[in-house]
């Protein structure tokens, strides 16, 4: 019913054509990628390319939606009305960004309802960072500064991703997100320069969020399952380790400006490399959280499922109303 035309397109596009036609299509696709042109929804594309994109865009969308929870946790308790307005607008943006991304995924012939179902049943993942709890108000600052900071570093190259709808969604998201990181930095800066208790709260947040933020860039290049192919397809433009290094280099002087200490005894400037060296990441923790055993995995998904199930009668009502008043509704069904 939804995305009907698109599903047919996608089905037509992925139907196995004759072998010679197949190689001609593949050739045209490769030429477009080679010329750094965008692939658009109705173009022929290899099934593996389509699947990779659906997986990545859906995971990205799920992350935005689940990411609303840890920050939403503090909206009703924000300590000033100004901060409350900022946080509410930011969490609202995340819902919006999730929607932009689901819309991009739907151009690949999948339905949002199916993607949400995959999220609800654990068949698709979201960023592991959101399985950590926001224990104090300073965590709102740490998420803005570090988590959004890491996300921006990941997202900037995605604006040039080979798949048009994804790239365009990222342009919009990057533009809107510029305030997210700044508000987090400002929030932490005020805490770090506030009372001793506030400073301690800020340091504690940095201590807890630093390492999970580094893990946001994914496993080391040597162990990254999808990296090489994604780079060849120009879905991805930089390796995980490259982006992680960029994040560390950018964050160190920012932490100094905040007057906070990054919790890594091995962190130091390496003159020879022109980069900061940093300590070894505990990938077992990452794997544990990924496997569903982080502090909040269960509650995040349960809360999302609850909202969805509680809304079922509302969505049914809206559809029933549309059917009764079909002059205003959709003809397709």
């Amino acid at each position: 019913m939804t995305a009907q035309a698109r599903t047919q397109d996608a089905a037509a596009a992925v139907a196995e054509p004759e072998l010679s036609a197949q190689s001609e299509l593949q050739g045209r696709f490769d030429d477009l990628i080679g010329a750094d042109e965008r692939i658009e929804p109705r173009d022929w594309m290899p099934e593996a390319y389509r699947k990779t994109l659906v997986r990545q865009i859906a995971q990205h969308a799920h992350s935005e939606i689940i990411g609303m929870q840890p920050e939403g946790n503090w909206i009703t308790r924000a300590p000033s009305l100004r901060r409350k307005a900022i946080l509410l607008a930011k969490v609202q943006d995340e819902a919006g960004h999730g929607l932009y991304l689901y819309a991009a995924a739907e151009t690949l012939g999948v339905d949002r309802a199916d993607l949400l179902d995959a999220l609800h049943t654990g068949r698709q993942k979201y960023s592991s960072i959101f399985n950590y709890p926001t224990l104090t108000w300073a965590d709102i600052g740490a998420i803005g500064w570090l988590v959004d900071g890491a996300a921006i570093i990941n997202q900037i190259p995605l604006q040039r991703c080979s798949y048009g709808p994804y790239a365009r969604a990222m342009v919009r998201i990057c533009k809107e997100e510029s305030f997210h990181q700044r508000q987090g930095f400002e929030l932490l800066h005020d805490l770090a320069h506030g009372t001793p208790e506030q400073h301690a709260m800020a340091q504690d947040a940095l201590d807890r969020w630093w390492w999970p933020s580094l893990m946001m860039f994914g496993p080391p290049d040597a162990e990254s399952a999808h990296s090489a192919q994604s780079m060849a397809w120009r879905i991805k433009r930089h390796s995980n380790d490259e982006l992680r290094q960029r994040f560390v280099d950018i964050s160190v002087p920012q932490a100094e400006a905040l007057g906070l200490r990054i919790p890594d005894p091995d962190l130091r400037w390496n003159e020879e490399r022109g980069h900061h060296d940093f300590g070894v990441i505990d990938w077992t923790e990452f794997q544990e959280v990924l496997a569903g055993n982080g502090p909040c995995n269960r509650q995040r998904v349960a809360s999302r499922v609850q909202a969805h199930e509680d809304g079922e009668w509302v969505r049914e009502a809206a559809l029933a109303y549309a059917a009764k008043h079909s002059d205003k509704g959709v003809a397709a069904a």
Partner: peptide
């Protein structure tokens, strides 16, 4: 209204209620 954030019947409605 802000208590609805992330709990509303549809994602579009989360955006609307936050507005």
């Amino acid at each position: 209204l802000s208590e609805w954030c992330a709990h509303s019947p549809e994602l579009e409605e989360d955006v609307a209620l936050a507005n």
